[in-house]
C-alpha cells in the first residue's frame, strides 16, 4: 500500500451492475450513512463499523463459534443464541464458521485494491461504464471517497456517485471535479415527512443539489416511490418544480420500494424494521406516467418513459 493510500470501509464490490448509472458498472458499497431511512434497502451499510451478520437458516449448530468466542457471545444450549450485547465484533466466529451462517459485513479495503477490482472489468465498460460508489452514503467517508474518485479519474475510469445529498456543503465542489454523474436521491419532497422517515433536512439536500448543478455536475435524480408515503400529486408537483429548475439533470429515475432489506436487518439483529406497502406494477407505471405528463423526463425499469 502506498503511504498516501486510503482505506475505505465497504461491504461489497459488486461487478456487472446494469442499473447504477450508464453502461456496465462495478459498484462499491461504502459503510456508514447519516440518514436513518425507515425503508432502507441496504441496512448493512448504515453502521460505519464492521458488523457480524447471522443467518439462522444456514446454522447447523456445530458449535465451532462457541468454542472460539472470547466473550461467550455465542451459545448453543439451551438454545442457539448470538448475544449482540456481549459481542465485541472481533470476527473470530466468522472465520471458523463452516456454513457461512456467520458473516462479517464491513471490511477495510485500500483505494488501490478497490481500483484493481474495478479495472478487472475494463473490457466491459466501453465508453459509458465504470465505477459507481454507493452505500451507505459514500460521502460519510469523505477522505477515502475523494482519494478513490481521484484515483479512478487518473486511470480514466468513469465515475458515478449515488448519494442521499446529506453532506457538508463544502464537499460539493471537490466532488464535481471527479464525478461524471451524480445519482442524487430525492427520497421525499415533503419536509416533515422526510424528517420523520429519514431524519434528513430537505433544505440542506436541495442546497447541495443546486450547488452541484450550478457547477455543471451532471445529475440523475433517483426517487424511491412508496404507496401511501410519497406516491401523490404533491410529490409530483414538487419534483417537477425541482427538475425544471435544474440545468444539468438528465432525468428522474424511479426506484420502487421493495422489502428485501428486511432480511438483512434481521441478520443484523435489528428488530425495528418497518414494512411498507410495495407498489404494484400498475401503480408504478401510473405514477411514472403522471410524473412524465407533468413535464419531467422519467426513467422506470431501465427505460425512459415515452
Amino acid at each position: 500500500m502506498k503511504t498516501n493510500d486510503k482505506n475505505i470501509m465497504i461491504t461489497d464490490i459488486q461487478r456487472f451492475c446494469m442499473h447504477d448509472g450508464p453502461g456496465i458498472r462495478t459498484t462499491v458499497f461504502f459503510k456508514g450513512c447519516p440518514l436513518n431511512c425507515a425503508w432502507c434497502h441496504n441496512p448493512e451499510t448504515k453502521n460505519p463499523n464492521a458488523e457480524i451478520m447471522f443467518l439462522a437458516g444456514k446454522c447447523i449448530s456445530c458449535g465451532a463459534c462457541v468454542s472460539v468466542c472470547p466473550v461467550g457471545a455465542q451459545s448453543l444450549l439451551p438454545n442457539r443464541v448470538f448475544d449482540r450485547k456481549t459481542c465485541i465484533g472481533c470476527g473470530k466466529c466468522v472465520s471458523c464458521c463452516f456454513t457461512g451462517a456467520l458473516t462479517i459485513s464491513g471490511k477495510n479495503v485500500s483505494a488501490e485494491n478497490i481500483i484493481a477490482s474495478v479495472k478487472k472489468d475494463l473490457e466491459f465498460y466501453g465508453e459509458e461504464g465504470g465505477l459507481t460508489v454507493s452505500g451507505g452514503e459514500p460521502t460519510f467517508q469523505k477522505e477515502g471517497l475523494l482519494y478513490l474518485l481521484d484515483a479512478a479519474k487518473s486511470e480514466n475510469i468513469s465515475t458515478c456517485i449515488e448519494t442521499c445529498g446529506a453532506f457538508p456543503a463544502d464537499l460539493a465542489e471537490k466532488l464535481v471535479n471527479n464525478v461524471d454523474y451524480f445519482l442524487f436521491d430525492i427520497k421525499d419532497t415533503n419536509k416533515q415527512r422526510l424528517k420523520q422517515y429519514t431524519g434528513a433536512a430537505l433544505q440542506d439536500i436541495l442546497l447541495n443539489l443546486f450547488n452541484i448543478d450550478s457547477m455543471n455536475g451532471k445529475i440523475i435524480l433517483r426517487c424511491i416511490i412508496i404507496p401511501n408515503i410519497n406516491m401523490n400529486q404533491e410529490h409530483i408537483n414538487n419534483l417537477l418544480n425541482i427538475f425544471s429548475k435544474l440545468n444539468n439533470a438528465e432525468y428522474i429515475e424511479l426506484l420502487p420500494y421493495h422489502p428485501y432489506g428486511n432480511s438483512k436487518s434481521e441478520q443484523l439483529g435489528r428488530k425495528d424494521t418497518t414494512v411498507f406497502q410495495r407498489p404494484t406494477e400498475n401503480e408504478i407505471l401510473e405514477f411514472a406516467k403522471a410524473l412524465q405528463k407533468s413535464g419531467c423526463i422519467v426513467k422506470c425499469h431501465g427505460s425512459i418513459i415515452k
Binding site: 442499473h19 450508464p22 453502461g23 456496465i24 422506470c300 425499469h301 431501465g302 427505460s303
Partner: peptide
C-alpha cells in the same frame, strides 16, 4: 430490463 439492460 429496459434500455439500460440493452446497453449492458
Amino acid at each position: 430490463e429496459g434500455d439500460d439492460g440493452l446497453n449492458a
